[in-house]
Nucleic acid binder design. Structure first.
Lengths: 338, 338
DNA sequence: CCTGGAAACGTAACCGATAACGATTGCAGT
DNA sequence: ACTGCAATCGTTATCGGTTACGTTTCCAGG
């Protein structure tokens, strides 16, 4: 923790080495036009003086900060996964990552906050950013990659194959023999929510099972929103034998409600979630869910953003990642059939 | 996602408003020496042009970036907690947070990596940083606050009251009637590991129970390191009736090993951890542990660092936060006594 | 009417680094 | 010896703001 107060600058190096700052700059950046002798000499004085180039000054001159932003409205466990993926993608790439999260984690979810913050940083501190929360169109001079974008948005984005994932999940339940399958939807403004519901409907229809609108609860991805919906579904006389929730957070709440109502999972009720957050593996019973690897989403989003910034992005601006079904112990054949 | 390419600068504002950049700067920063009329006029042109001051240029001039760093060697769940706390402390403070994590999450844990990275960023991009991984002394021009510092370090730090926490944990086991209590230690270079072991010894000694060195396993906080140690302890003929692990990660591994060996928790074995990570609450059985609120540690560390940077830190440079025992279902009286 | 001084504002140096451009040097070709 | 072209290196403008300092304006007091 020794405090060394020697902000040694490039001109210090230049003076000591007896060259101009331009030459030092060329050596530092490995540019052409410096003799081997001079390079060695400058290198050694840099070493000797312990010079470190100022990222701030470089950023100003190059009008590139090499810092990317990750913007989210709340920092949950899945956000951490996204973060890990993004960090992995950015490691040793020369880019750093800065995090912006809403201060009021829940509740007074100030609409303007993120956008203001985003606008502020987008032109100044970062070269671009990843957003994990859905607002409509985002105004920015710099590239923005959305993870789970809003429905109808057209900008760069990375998302899971929600349609296929949801279809597989419901097919799993159908294969077990379930016919009355409830669904708890996510916030409809999100593309992901819409696709997952679509997958639910498609799987049922394909199996010749009519879609019963009364078995669909309208949640918003917030776990708490699932509680009354689950309760309503499970207190019906003709309650479903299985429930598919559009997110693990909501599915875990379904498990809680079932426990509270004395309904055994999976004997009396099968539950399937979507996301595969860490908690789903460690809960009891383990939650059957669709893995969408937030890590992977973060990884790909960061990779795309980086290339977008450096201007060498080849792939499509909208990326869809595969999902996989993770069968744990929250699903089983229904009682009357099993 | 509309791309607006109008990097409007301060001189743009000055030109349009018909004043000098100095005046615009004064208005932006609310400095004295500008008439009310001019202020209003400049404000309106700023609004009209949508001007945003460049954080990079400001940082260069002020030689302050208003960015703080969080450095860690691996991004685990507890790191996420620290991060959340730090973000909370920094919200609306004008400071942003940037994350540095080791790319190779496990294994080839390159010693020099962090220090190099730290040195690099410390003088250039950030005004100071929080480190969550223990290296000896850290060389830096900017303030560094350590969370769980290395034993013997003297710089600013924030840590839990590990001694008291560990003592309480062991006293809990003693109160239940346990006498043969195993201990799995953490990496000894850490102050925290040392204090927790000290608490274990103190509690036993105070209760008149001799410390049996063969009941102490030397782990390193890495969860995997606990597996062989737990196995060794539990396969003894005179195996302990309780095990206190210096971290939840290791304690959870103890639970796994017990399950694998067919030892029932808490009937045949009580287990206590330290940290209270989220997984400890959702596992089955719930892990009794010492809560040290990584969130709080992150919060206080960020608060301290911020004040250290702005130069108005009043409190002590070493902070110790209280802990609390969280009793769940992994502890119970030993069989022969219960 | 004149002077003093504070208020209001502009000028320009500067933060640290980069790069376009110009100047110098060295050496091969004739 | 002279020209020409590279290689090498220095000069200087510039990135966008900030601020010390100088200048002008304006009003009150003598």
């Amino acid at each position: 923790m020794t405090e060394v107060n020697a902000p040694v600058t490039m001109s210090d190096v230049a003076r000591v080495a007896g060259v101009s700052t331009a030459t030092v700059s060329r050596v530092v950046n490995g540019h052409y036009g410096v003799s081997a002798n001079t390079v060695a000499h400058v290198r050694s004085t840099i070493e000797q003086l312990g010079y470190e180039s100022s990222l701030v000054a470089t950023s100003l001159r190059r009008s590139r900060t090499n810092v990317l932003g990750l913007v989210t409205h709340s920092f949950q466990s899945y956000t951490a996964e996204v973060l890990k993926g993004a960090m992995k993608a950015l490691s040793r790439s020369g880019f750093d990552l800065i995090i912006y999260a809403n201060s009021d984690l829940y509740g007074s979810y100030s609409e303007g906050w993120e956008r203001r913050h985003l606008t502020r940083l987008s032109g100044t501190l970062t070269d671009g950013c990843i957003v994990v929360t859905p607002w409509g169109e985002v105004q920015s001079r710099t590239p923005v990659v959305a993870i789970d974008p809003a429905r109808g948005s057209t900008g760069p984005s990375v998302m899971a194959d929600n349609l296929a994932g949801a279809t597989t999940a419901v097919e799993h339940l159908l294969a077990l023999g379930h016919r009355r399958i409830g669904f708890i939807a996510g916030r409809s403004s999100l593309e992901a929510a819409w696709s997952r519901e679509e997958g639910y409907r498609a799987a049922l229809t394909d199996a010749g099972v009519p879609v019963d609108p009364t078995l669909i609860g309208r949640g918003d991805f917030n776990p708490e929103s699932a509680v009354p919906l689950a309760r309503a579904l499970l207190q019906r006389a003709d309650r479903p034998t299985a429930i598919f929730a559009a997110s693990d957070g909501m599915a875990l709440k379904v498990l809680e409600v079932a426990r509270e109502l004395g309904i055994d999972v999976p004997a009396d009720l099968s539950v399937v979630g979507f996301d595969n957050i860490p908690e789903s593996a460690s809960t009891a019973p383990g939650l059957t869910t669709v893995d969408q690897s937030m890590y992977q989403l973060g990884y790909e989003a960061a990779r795309m953003l980086k290339s977008l910034v450096t201007g060498d992005w080849e792939g499509p601006r909208r990326m869809v990642l595969p999902t996989s079904l993770v069968v744990r112990s929250s699903t089983a054949p229904p009682k009357n059939t099993g």
